[in-house]
């Protein structure tokens, strides 16, 4: 058997590769959607409750920024993930599989995305916010109709960066029971020295990241009218 036939008959590729890719995509999709929704809310709260923000609220800002975001962000993801295994089991009933992994992935990326959103919102000039207020907007209208739309190009870039980060983290999550391409690369590439599987896994992940980045950049350009 020549090299290629052997490769094509390798069960690591024929049987395991596709389900692993699907698992990875599941993990990335679930945690991206939840991270974006929750992170957007926290990011808006971080920005508006700041002392120079739209609705200064010191206690809430301290809790969100100082305690939740900073503490979570200072724990390395590999450690956070292991520490969250009991919590994942509590939330989804099992600590194994892509759904369980999504719990720790989400918790690990929400603070990161929230900070990016806060930065994007801070780039909206205070003059625009003043203009909106002077025209008689409620605070909610300022957020919904001015702040977020004006920061949208920055928020889209933040989403792109976050999804790429989640793809990277998902490989790590694979090692502690999450499955997916990370697990595949570890099982075949590391423990069985099958270099080919390792390389193909890398190629698939690179393609995923490229697609996300190109799509993200394209959308960011579409929504950017500055």
């Amino acid at each position: 058997m020549d090299y290629f036939t052997e490769l094509l008959n390798n069960p690591g590729i024929t049987k395991a590769m596709w389900p692993a890719t699907v698992e990875t995509m599941q993990m990335v999709f679930i945690s991206s959607v939840v991270s974006v929704v929750v992170g957007l809310l926290i990011g808006i709260l971080l920005h508006t409750t700041d002392k120079t923000g739209l609705a200064p609220m010191r206690w809430l800002n301290v809790i969100l920024s100082g305690i939740i975001v900073n503490i979570t962000r200072s724990i390395p993801f590999a450690i956070l993930m292991v520490a969250l295994i009991p919590f994942s089991a509590l939330v989804v009933g099992t600590s194994l599989g892509p759904i369980a992994a999504s719990v720790s992935l989400t918790i690990g990326t929400v603070p990161f995305f929230a900070r990016l959103v806060e930065t994007a919102l801070r780039d909206v000039s205070s003059g625009k916010i003043d203009a909106a207020l002077v025209m008689g907007s409620t605070k909610m209208q300022v957020i919904r109709k001015v702040m977020v739309p004006e920061a949208l190009p920055g928020i889209v870039s933040a989403i792109t960066t976050t999804v790429v980060t989640i793809i990277g983290y998902s490989a790590m999550a694979g090692l502690v029971g999450g499955g997916g391409l990370g697990r595949l690369a570890y099982n075949y590439g590391y423990t069985r020295y099958e270099l080919e599987i390792m390389i193909i896994t890398i190629i698939i992940i690179v393609i995923m990241v490229q697609v996300v980045q190109i799509l993200g950049d394209w959308i960011a350009r579409k929504v950017d009218h500055r």
Partner: peptide
């Protein structure tokens, strides 16, 4: 306003 402060979006 001095710089119009239009909404770019």
């Amino acid at each position: 306003f001095q710089h119009a402060n239009l909404f770019d979006s």
